[in-house]
């Protein structure tokens, strides 16, 4: 009769490379999605804040629809619908795309909030000094808004990492799927899901800490 305890540690040891690769995939998906989402989100956020009525409406529809559906639905939609349109996305790409679109909606909303929350006096002082809109935006508004947004953005990063679990459903071999494959082999279900949870916890916790550190460093004194 196998001593389950040593069995677990042994199993963990032989699975470590798979778990590591899975973690790498999860982090890659998340990182790419965040990059895409942040850039796209900033642009949409700018459209929301400064755009004309057409841009603002389009941006608003985008944000409200994306934020009105669960991430899982978004992921599955991207994966299945795009095939119909002849775009055969590999699971990894579909995952990045859907998570990117998802995080963009959040980034857009927080950008709008950050910019609109800025004290009106800042724009007035810049205007009074003769600064153009572009100069005001780059030198006065954005630096302050970014500091405001940072905590929320870190949150979105963590949510995206957590969202990357869901891409296991479309077949991306990240942490969750790897864990399930390991469990299929050794039936140590509870223990390995615990390991899986632990890995996510470590990732999220580190991101949180890193975020707090950066927050402190760039804080306005």
């Amino acid at each position: 009769m196998m001593n389950l305890n040593t069995g677990f540690w042994h199993e963990l040891w032989i699975s470590i490379d798979d778990l590591a690769i899975g973690t790498g995939i999860a982090l890659s998906v998340s990182a790419l999605a965040i990059i895409m989402g942040t850039i796209l989100g900033l642009l949409i956020g700018l459209a929301l804040t400064y755009g004309n009525i057409v841009l603002r409406t389009l941006a608003r529809i985008y944000v409200d629809v994306i934020r009105g559906i669960p991430v899982l639905v978004l992921i599955l939609t991207f994966f299945y619908v795009l095939t119909i349109w002849g775009i055969n996305l590999k699971p990894f790409q579909a995952g990045v795309l859907s998570l990117g679109v998802f995080s963009a909606a959040h980034v857009a909303e927080m950008t709008r909030g950050g910019l609109q929350n800025l004290n009106k006096g800042q724009t007035e002082a810049a205007k009074a000094l003769g600064l153009s809109f572009r100069q005001t935006f780059l030198s006065v508004l954005m630096p302050q808004a970014l500091r405001q947004i940072l905590p929320t953005w870190i949150n979105t990063v963590i949510e995206t990492v957590k969202g990357s679990t869901l891409v296991s459903i479309i077949g991306v071999v990240e942490i969750t799927l790897v864990t399930q494959q390991i469990i299929a082999r050794n039936f140590l279900t509870m223990k390995f899901y615990a390991v899986c949870a632990l890995i996510y916890f470590c990732i999220g916790f580190s991101i949180e800490r890193a975020g707090k550190y950066v927050e402190k460093k760039i804080a306005i004194k």
């Binding site: 800042q122 002082a125 009074a128 000094l129 809109f133 500091r147």
Partner: peptide, 28 residues
């Protein structure tokens, strides 16, 4: 925008740029 530089304004609530030093506020 150009004509605004003909005047200088000081506000009731100062409206200094909080992320810049005093000198940077002036040099911007």
């Amino acid at each position: 925008t150009h004509d605004r530089a003909l005047t200088g304004m000081v506000f009731q609530s100062f409206n200094l740029f909080p992320h810049l030093t005093a000198a940077e506020n002036i040099t911007l």
